[in-house]
């Protein structure tokens, strides 16, 4: 079953590039795009994606506010914050708002797919070593849980995601939506 993805970024060139790149992976499908947080929430309501790639700095409604609202009204949807170096400080806010992890826009493109797949399985990534991430961890963001590799063959650790963990792999394998963390 393909993972349904919504792209939320105010830069259309980024959305276009992501759509193009993710279309290479048959397990991934970009089902929609939005250019700000408010549009993103609306699209989630309509399209029910599995994963949202959410830019943080956007007009109208920024990514952090949108993540907060999504956690409330669509808890089944995993959100990955998509940030650039300049937005490093916002990582804390994004993770505290409920993003399962974050990706830097300079991340190697290959890792993007792996990360999306991990997130779709509810795996909480170990946060990458950045100032914002360290502070996020210090301030009580979701803590990585221990990974059960034996039960999840599709896990792919990468440097950006650190040591991946698995929240509820069984749900994914059974075709159900991953259950929410406690």
């Amino acid at each position: 079953m393909t993972i349904r993805i919504l792209l939320v970024d105010d830069h259309s060139v980024v959305r276009q590039g992501l759509r193009m790149f993710l279309s290479l992976d048959p397990d991934l499908e970009v089902v929609g795009e939005a250019s700000n947080g408010a549009e993103g929430i609306e699209q989630v309501r309509q399209l029910k994606p599995d994963v949202v790639l959410m830019d943080l700095v956007m007009p109208v409604m920024d990514g952090i506010m949108a993540i907060q609202q999504l956690r409330k009204e669509s808890p089944d949807v995993e959100v990955i914050a998509l940030t650039s170096v300049l937005e490093d400080e916002k990582v804390v806010g994004a993770v505290r708002a409920g993003a399962i992890g974050y990706l830097l826009k300079d991340t190697q493109a290959d890792e993007l797919c792996r990360a999306i797949k991990a997130a779709a399985q509810g795996q909480v990534p170990a946060l990458a070593a950045s100032r914002g991430a360290t502070r996020a961890r210090d301030q009580g963001a979701r803590q990585p849980r221990k990974i059960d590799r034996a039960r999840d063959g599709c896990l792919c650790a990468c440097s950006q995601w650190g040591v991946p963990t698995k929240r509820s792999p069984t749900n994914l394998s059974s075709g159900k939506r991953p259950s929410r963390r406690t």
């Binding site: 830069h11 060139v13 980024v14 590039g17 790149f21 290479l24 650039s84 170096v85 826009k105 300079d106």
Partner: peptide, 29 residues
């Protein structure tokens, strides 16, 4: 200026990375 760079050139470069990755894969496929 940093914001401008972030809003413009860095997004374009990220798009170029994504496009190049895509192109490389498709050249083989």
């Amino acid at each position: 200026l940093a914001r401008e760079l972030h809003d413009s050139v860095s997004q374009a470069l990220y798009g170029i990375v994504l496009g190049a990755r895509t192109a490389r894969t498709l050249v083989e496929r």
